[in-house]
């Protein structure tokens, strides 16, 4: 984990981006337990539609700016042990709590007290437990199948756009398919 460059960037922008992000999440219904659990029950596809259209829009813009040399990517390095096991544990928590770390902040703003009193306290305890176990996990399971900072284009050893374009097309097709089936 690298020292975050952003910790030196003007905090006011963090506030502005956060307010906009929270505003969007609330307008999309993603601050609500019923909407998030509806997605995990596969009865309400709002969350997936928000995520996929965000990824589609974001990806095209980010890779355009990267190609133009305006920005650099800011990736999380990873490993099979970290991303698969951590991802599955996260998923269990996601289902039991019904919020995630971003949407729980939105849920608190929406007035949901189960998020504030139960969920927030739980997340703080969970991260604390992780910090306590970290020295034992760091060089073991978290390093299993380590692949570091890697993008899909690097993995396939192709030009960025050889991946960006098909992913964009696939996301569009998936969204059209969801609408066609009335999901």
């Amino acid at each position: 984990m690298q020292t975050k460059e952003s910790d030196r960037s003007p905090l006011i922008w963090g506030l502005i981006f956060g307010i906009l992000f929270g505003f969007f999440l609330q307008k999309g219904g993603a601050t609500k337990y019923d909407v998030i659990i509806g997605q995990l029950l596969l009865s309400d596809f709002t969350v997936l539609k928000i995520m996929l259209s965000a990824v589609l829009t974001g990806m095209i813009g980010i890779y355009l700016m990267k190609t133009l040399g305006w920005i650099k990517l800011n990736l999380k390095s990873g490993s099979m042990g970290s991303n698969i096991i951590g991802g599955l544990i996260f998923g269990v928590g996601f289902a039991v709590l019904g919020y995630c770390p971003g949407t729980i902040a939105g849920a608190i703003g929406n007035g949901y007290l189960d998020a504030l009193v139960g969920g927030l306290a739980g997340i703080l305890i969970g991260t604390g437990i992780f910090a306590a176990l970290y020295p034992r996990l760091k060089t073991g399971i978290l390093k299993k199948g380590d692949f570091g900072n890697l993008t899909l284009p690097q993995l396939f050893k192709v030009n960025d756009w050889v991946v960006v374009v098909p992913v964009a097309v696939l996301i569009c097709l998936l969204l059209i398919w969801l609408e066609r089936f009335g999901l």
């Binding site: 951590g86 996260f90 995630c100 306290a121 739980g122 997340i123 992780f130 910090a131």
Partner: peptide
């Protein structure tokens, strides 16, 4: 919700993100 939060927080740090 608290129990779910423990798993969520623990898993998010294990996976390195949410």
């Amino acid at each position: 919700a608290l129990i779910g939060g423990v798993f969520l927080g623990f898993g998010a740090r294990w996976a390195g993100g949410c």
